[in-house]
Design a binder for these strands. Structure first.
Length: 206
DNA sequence: TGCCAGGCCCTCTTTAGGGCCTT
């Protein structure tokens, strides 16, 4: 079974180390080439959202006043994802916010992250750029037309990673593209992608 | 006082600097 969770956070800024907090989280389960379940919630950390981020995401301070606490949402997220490995676009960003929010409820992440941005840079080197929205348009993937909301972005990332898996399966005659291969591929030298894939194919018995 | 992310990647590099990407 090759299941993983695509996760996306909306936040008050770029760095939990500088006091920024999550305002919304979404997670979608990808099983094979389809989304089988999803989780989404706004979350109230009791901090104000800067106006330029309210404009970017459409998430207002008034919306968060009605939202459940971060503690409740993060516990529910932990229950939803279980031990499934993660995928995110620019995963270093979502990793640091997930770890920071889970740390607040004394919960420690055990599963690895794969990054759809790092993999995309290797698989689609000639894309105009590797922003999520650009890749979705470039590859003609389905969208809801909504951007910078957690569930919409998580679904787009899921579509992107399914496209990557399908393209790799077709090009390199792979039976599947497991999460472990994505983790290896995102660290591969750019001029050695084919070699990395063939070595990993043998190692994982694909 | 003033400033403040950070990991990855490229190159006019490696004793460094700057762009990308996320909100």
């Amino acid at each position: 079974m090759n299941k993983f969770v695509v996760i996306d956070f909306e936040t008050t800024g770029l760095s939990p180390n500088l006091g920024d907090r999550a305002t919304e989280v979404a997670a979608v389960i990808v099983d094979g080439d389809r989304i089988t379940d999803s989780f989404q919630s706004l979350m109230n950390a009791g901090v104000a959202i800067p106006s330029y981020i309210q404009q970017l995401t459409g998430i207002s301070n008034a919306m968060l006043r009605e939202a459940p606490s971060c503690q409740k949402v993060m516990q529910a997220l932990a229950d939803f994802v279980g031990d499934m490995p993660f995928v995110a676009h620019n995963a270093s960003f979502d990793t640091k916010f997930l770890d920071a929010e889970w740390y607040r409820i004394q919960y420690k992440r055990r599963q690895p992250f794969a990054c759809s941005m790092l993999v995309s840079r290797r698989i689609y080197p000639h894309a105009p750029d590797h922003k999520l929205g650009t890749l979705v348009r470039h590859l003609k993937l389905p969208t809801t037309g909504e951007y910078h909301r957690a569930l919409a972005d998580a679904k787009m990332t899921a579509s992107l990673i399914i496209k990557i898996q399908n393209d790799l399966q077709e090009k390199y005659k792979l039976a599947s593209v497991p999460h472990e291969m994505l983790c290896i591929l995102q660290k591969s030298p750019k001029d050695a992608i084919a070699n990395t894939i063939m070595k990993t194919k043998i190692k994982l018995g694909l």
